[in-house]
Nucleic acid binder design. Sequence first.
DNA 1: CGTGTAAGGAATTCTGACACG
DNA 2: CGTGTAAGGAATTCTGACACG
Lengths: 108, 108
Amino acid sequence: MNYKTKKLITIGIVCEMTGLSERQIRYYEERKLIFPERTKGGTRKYSFNDIESLMDIAEKMDDGMQTFEIKQLHNKNKASAREEMIKGQINARFGQNRAPLDQSDKRL
Amino acid sequence: MNYKTKKLITIGIVCEMTGLSERQIRYYEERKLIFPERTKGGTRKYSFNDIESLMDIAEKMDDGMQTFEIKQLHNKNKASAREEMIKGQINARFGQNRAPLDQSDKRL
DNA sequence: CGTGTAAGGAATTCTGACACG
DNA sequence: CGTGTAAGGAATTCTGACACG
C-alpha cells in the first residue's frame, strides 16, 4: 500500500540494483518466485519489495539452493506467519493476559 | 537516501501517476522545476519525490501560476528552511535553554 | 536446472521543430 | 507561455528458441 509495494520499476533498473541479468529475473518469475505487473504494452514493472525479494533469492541461489526450494521456503514462511497471526488472535480472546470482557457480555 | 529519493521510474509511469503528459513533464524539467536522472542510454528516471513535486506543480499550474513563479516560490521555501535551520543552530548555542558549555571551554 | 545468447519485433522514450494562442 | 503533435531515430523490453551442462 505504500511506496515499497508499488510496481513501477522497469527490468533494466532492477538489473542494476540487484546485479542480476534480465534472463535470471524473468526465469525467477517463470518459477513463480516474483510477480511483476505489466504495462498495457507488456513491459514488466517491479516494486521495491520485488527488488528486495530478488536480492534474497540471489543470495539463496548463491548458497546452492534451487528455485523450487526457495519457493517452498517462502510458502512455509507465509504459513508460519498465518499461524502466528491466528495464535495471536486466540490469545487476545482467551489468553492469560487478555483484557477484561465488556460489561455487555455479563448479561447472565 | 530512502526509497522516495531514488530515481528509478520512467516517464510513462510518471504520466500515469500524475495525469500529466510527457510534454508537460519534460517542459517542467526545462524550466528547472524537476531534475530527473538519466540512464546510460538517455532515458529519464524519476523518484517518488519527483512525482509528488509534479502533483504539486500541476495543482499550482491549475491555479494559474506560471512556471517561474513556482520556481521562485520553491526557492523561497528553501531559503526559509535554511533560515530556520540556522536559527535553530544559534538557539542551540546561545539561547535561553542551551545546554551548559563543556568544561574544556572554561580554561581561562 | 539455471543461464547465456542471437533474432526479430514491438513498446517506450528521445530530440528538435512547427503550431496555436 | 504552456502544450499538442507528427517525424525519425535510438534505447529498452519482449518472446521463443537453441545451447551447454
